[in-house]
Design a protein around this nucleic acid. Structure first.
Length: 463
RNA sequence: GGUCCUAUCGUCUAGCGGCCCAGGACACCGCCCUCUCACGGCGGAGACACGGGUUCGAUUCCCGUUGGGACUACCA
């Protein structure tokens, strides 16, 4: 078999959608798995809606996800000569013709056809007219009117369309630009694309494109149509369903690995395995295991998976994203070793890096206030033991958990208290809340100085 | 309307004729662990859309019905 070439062709009309990201991932995985090439092509032929900003965020999202491309990015808008040369090939071989029907006329005919129960397709008025190029004219493909166009889809199996259902589609516009179908086919041929993995909203477009390949005398590529990603209401996923773009997940503190893992599992599976690293995915991915039905995007499951990835990621790799989100909270991270200790205490209790950053705040700033439940832990009855603990802690080595533990034990014994009793006010004093990492690892990461000053401050409230 | 695609717990899915009175994961509900919060462990509730076939035997194959989706542009 020849070398595999896949491609991801986003339109720069917005940010990278999670559905698009999944398509990109599948193409990337398939290329990687087979030692092939993954091409990035920006389909910016719609001048009205394409923006440079969109292109930038799409590239940015792809980089963040780690889906690097081997070739490109190519910009379709810069390839007009190539597209035109394909149209000429078609014109010269009699597989295409100039059509002078105006959009208004066509619209009228469509309406008429609809009313009389006919098909709203082009009636072929100029098909045999032998028109020459003229202002305002378009080029149409001279498609077969009978027969069947079929293909074998890697995920859906055999699919066939009656050519009678298709019409002579426009391939070159009156403003001298190619239409989508022509541009895609021309570019895919020209770039040597062998396998097209795309959303199944393109299934009905496939026969039209195959017809172009055939008219050109080229062999169509292999197709794999991946089912759509839906929102909770089973409608196509959009902004209305909440976060739908990759950048939003980055902002919310998700790890690329988790997003990729989730996206891969939405519509694809490998037995009962749920957790995958990128390496796993490359190894296990296959078109055959892509499901056929559309799937609902479940933010809750992504969240859980993100927590799993955070736990599975070496702490050192969490420092950069953590520092980024701390910075947004106004905290500048400098001491790497200390940061490692901080993250270590928060890893298993954070589902996102944003959550981790918020939970880490108390390590850097004294609690400005105590929440209600924490306030209730600061009772006068416990002032004495806390005072004694404070005294002992002054002499304790904070880097050693067992020393900290010994200090607590001594106080517990002297005052005949359970650990929970003494931990309550300490936790409240140190964090301002009633939820925190384990006491000793926390105090150790916090350090003696801050611990002591916070206990002193809390003691005043306990009097 | 026409054409095409599609249908297993609320959600993502395993299942590729008997291993399934259907397995895993998220969410949910109990219990356990426990200094809090998490993590983890154990248990519970929860699905083969419906109707016909084919077959000794259908979740699995075929045909309908119904539901969902896509396409039907000089948008991609």
């Amino acid at each position: 078999m020849n070398k595999i070439v896949t491609r991801f062709p986003p339109s720069p009309t917005g940010s990278l959608h999670v559905g698009g990201a999944r398509t990109a991932l599948f193409n990337w995985l398939y290329a990687k798995k087979h030692g092939g090439t993954f091409i990035l092509r920006i389909e910016d032929t719609d001048k009205e809606r394409s923006t440079q900003e969109s292109t930038d965020t799409i590239l940015d999202s792809l980089r963040w996800l780690g889906l690097s491309w081997d070739e490109g990015p190519f910009f379709q808008s810069q390839r007009a000569e190539i597209h035109w040369s394909f149209v000429q090939r078609l014109l010269n071989t009699g597989h295409a013709y100039w059509c002078a029907c105006t959009p208004e006329e066509l619209e009228k005919k469509r309406e008429m056809a609809m009313k009389t129960g006919g098909k709203p397709k082009y009636d072929g008025a100029c098909r045999e007219a032998g028109l020459a190029r003229r202002p305002g004219a378009v080029v149409r493909l001279k498609a077969p009117m009978t027969g069947v166009t079929s293909f074998t889809d890697a995920v859906k199996g055999a699919i066939a369309f009656d050519n009678a259902e298709l019409d002579d589609l426009v391939i070159w516009r009156s403003d001298d630009t190619p239409t989508y179908h022509l541009a895609v086919v021309a570019d895919d041929i020209e770039m040597g694309v062998t396998t097209i993995i795309r959303g199944d909203d393109h299934v009905s477009n496939t026969p039209r494109q195959i017809l172009i390949y055939e008219a050109l005398g080229e062999r169509p590529p292999f197709y794999a149509h991946v089912p759509m990603v839906l929102g909770a209401d089973k409608k196509r996923l959009s902004k209305r369903h909440g976060a739908a773009s990759v950048t939003e997940y980055r902002e919310m503190g998700y790890l690329p690995a988790a997003v990729l893992n989730y996206l891969a599992r939405l519509g694809w599976s490998s037995g009962d395995q749920e957790f995958f690293t990128l390496t796993d995915l490359v190894e296990k991915f296959s078109l055959e295991n892509i499901g056929r039905a559309a799937g609902v995007f479940d933010p809750g499951k992504l969240l859980d998976l993100n927590g799993e990835h955070i736990r599975a990621t070496p702490t050192a790799e969490l420092v950069a994203p953590f520092a980024l989100h701390m910075k947004r909270l106004g905290i500048e991270i400098s001491d790497e070793k200390h940061t490692l200790a901080v993250i270590e205490t928060l890893k298993i209790r954070s589902k996102t890096i944003v959550e981790m950053a918020e939970k880490a705040l108390f390590y850097y700033k004294d609690p400005a206030e105590f929440d209600d439940k924490a306030r209730k832990c600061l009772v006068p009855a416990l002032a004495a033991p806390v005072t004694e603990l404070l005294a002992r802690l002054k002499e304790t080595d904070f880097s050693d958990h067992s020393r900290l533990e010994a200090a607590f034990s001594a106080v517990m014994e002297a005052h005949n208290l359970g650990f929970g009793k003494i931990a309550g006010p300490v936790r409240a004093a140190v964090t301002g809340r009633t939820a925190s990492p384990g006491m000793f690892e926390m105090l150790s990461a916090l350090g003696r100085e801050k611990t002591l000053s916070r206990l002193e401050a809390a003691l005043k409230l306990m009097a």
